[in-house]
Design a protein around this nucleic acid. Sequence first.
DNA 1: AAAGGCGGCAACCGCATCACG
DNA 2: CCGTGATGCGGTTGCCGCCTT
Length: 327
Amino acid sequence: MGRLPTAPKSGDESKELRKGAWTPEEDQQLIHYIQNHGHGSWRALPKHAGLNRCGKSCRLRWTNYLRPDIKRGKFSQQEEDLINHLHSILGNKWSTIAANLPGRTDNEIKNYWNTHMKKKLLHMGIDPVTHQPRTNLYNCLPQLLALANIKELLDHNQLAQNLQCINLMLQTNTGLSSLLDRTNALPQLQEQSLNFVNDFPLQLCQENKEMEQQFLMGNSSITQPLHEVSIINILQANNEDDHHEEVGHGNGQSRFTNVNSSSSTTSSSITWNTPIPQLIDTTTITTTNNSGSLENGSTISSGGDGGISSYNWPEFLFEDSFLDQNL
DNA sequence: AAAGGCGGCAACCGCATCACG
DNA sequence: CCGTGATGCGGTTGCCGCCTT
């Protein structure tokens, strides 16, 4: 296994340091020297030991292969469990993980993780990075777009005002259907959504001040201000039937619409054609998923007819870098 | 039986961090 | 505090051997 010894370039062995696989002779030289003198300065070691290698190469060879306390051979189930557990906490901190497995090196654990354990977790439907049930990002794209919108709404702290304006628009059929139809153009969705969040409702608010006034005075036919309908209530309308399913089983449809958008009626009913990201019910997870914790998740709690539940989306879904990459 | 593909793993590379003058 | 060299760390590379066709 591994590399063949690399021949020195251009025949100048005195200058070129050897690279590639170590020969048994080199191993013996290194072992002999360290046993007698200790490694001391790794940079100076090859010269003293008569090795035509760089100090770094000597150090790696010693720490990863020649050290007498190294445990060779297959990883036990206990070791595997420990690696899995530590990786769920520490991530790719191989040296820290190795410190908890006597006789194993960080390099060995890293290789074992990448070649065995990662695949095993993937087969189990667990994301080897997050240690949570895998999410099919492609299927969840529309949901992620929706999340981006929600995040922007929350970030700008104009949620109540904007929703109220939407509500007014719905009641008066002031073009919400065309507004919502614009969201069909997925590539432009984010930018348009941002514009929508930042500008459009406020402009409309001004244009519809009269209607707003009526609403505030109770003269409107509006029965429930939209800002009293929490976003999560809208989201969960689609999840009521199946929110215990695994994350990421979207149906591929990708827009939300006003169900009556094609008509001239004044319905205020908004329906999401696509299920929102399947939230993970932590109360279910804790009993059915033994793959890891959800401590990094983003929790949304909601009281409702079915009682109080707690749901999680992975925190990374809300990060700008993730959204930038996937939108 | 031969060839190509793929998995496994030792070793390398480059960046980060530490230690010291 | 800064510069420099040593060491540590994580990601990547490249070769061998096994497996599949």
